[in-house]
């Protein structure tokens, strides 16, 4: 069932940028995954899509070429037999990985190719365009992630378990949007191993003695 306890949502400017189609693939992926779990943000996104519809309505029209309609009608005649497949699927809400994420992993959690990175932490980098990085993180219960800050955007979405940091408690479906230059040390909840999707659009910067351990951990 959809998580009704989501407390940490997407900020409006990210929803609008997602609606406008201005985000990189990895950021689109984490937003699509959160929205799959969060009807508040799904409704908010639909609101921004409606703004896009209003912008489209205001566009001047540029005439289509003379042969345009005929080409399109030929295409819909050629393809109509295969179109309109009316399959009915019950959403797989009992899975840990919502559909958009499962498409990148190639299945649910048991299909993830984890790579151990020390301290019991594992990660899997997902194949997206290189302007931002999406990784799944597996953090054993009670483990702390090294203190770090970022020059760009860092988004963290909880899929299983929970973590706690200065911004609060984050459970399944909650998304943290780390602001620029925020230092934080997320700690996985003690009760269960934590699985997160994390997206960064710029390299992370680490503080203190931890970088030595953190560099292989984050693969940058």
């Amino acid at each position: 069932m959809i998580a009704m306890t989501i407390k940490h949502h997407l900020p409006d400017e990210l929803l609008m940028a997602y609606s406008a189609g201005e985000l990189s693939e990895a950021v689109n992926l984490i937003l699509a995954t959160h929205i799959s779990l969060c009807d508040d943000c799904r409704a908010a996104l639909a609101g921004y899509d409606a703004v896009g519809g209003a912008v489209l309505d205001r566009c001047d029209s540029v005439p289509m070429s003379a042969s345009s309609l005929n080409s399109v009608l030929e295409l819909i005649h050629a393809q109509d037999s295969t179109a309109q497949e009316k399959e009915f699927r019950v959403p797989a809400s009992d899975r840990t990985l919502p559909e958009p994420l499962a498409a990148y992993v190639g299945g649910d959690l048991d299909s993830v190719h984890w790579r151990p990175v020390g301290m019991g932490v594992k990660q899997a980098i997902l194949p997206t365009s290189s302007d931002a990085t999406a990784r799944l993180l597996y953090i054993p219960a009670g483990t702390a992630i090294p203190d770090h800050s970022h020059s760009g955007l860092e988004l963290t979405l909880v899929l299983q378990g929970a973590f706690q940091d200065d911004d609060g408690y984050f459970g399944r479906g909650d998304i943290e949007v780390a602001s620029e230059n925020l230092h934080h040390t997320p700690v996985a909840d003690i009760s269960e191993d934590c699985i997160c999707l994390a997206v960064t659009d710029a390299p992370l910067k680490f503080k203190g003695w931890m970088p030595r351990m953190a560099q292989p951990f984050l693969g940058i």
Binding site: A32, A46, D49, L56, P98, P100, A103
Partner: peptide, 30 residues
Amino acid sequence: ASPSTWIFTIARNKKIDVLRKQKRPEPEDL
């Protein structure tokens, strides 16, 4: 969605597809 809104999302995805040469991850279907 209004028709304009729905057609906007199709045009937008077409734009990402062609100009960015990317697919756009979409939320789970309801």
